[in-house]
Amino acid sequence: MRGQVIVDQERCKECSLCITACPHDVLRISAAINSKGYHPVEAYQPENCTGCTFCATICPDVALTIMRKRPERK
């Protein structure tokens, strides 16, 4: 796991743009329901995440925070 997506469930509106943007099939719509009635996304294959930030870049609601492993020093 090189990267990690943290979803702010309350900000997510289930637009799915992050799912289409993710090159590694990390995300999907979850079964949870937030206070606005949306099913927020979740990282169902977190081990695939590279921390590339594509999902967060396209997210219109700034609902995603991305962590990445520090590159190994050579």
Binding site: Q4, K13, P60, M67
Partner: peptide, 22 residues
């Protein structure tokens, strides 16, 4: 792990009212 993407400081914490995907 370090944060490489987060909400910028120049944005407030208020969730936005825009339609999904806007």
């Amino acid at each position: 792990m370090r944060v490489v993407f987060e909400k910028p400081e120049a944005m407030t914490d208020s969730p936005m009212h825009y339609c999904p995907g806007c």
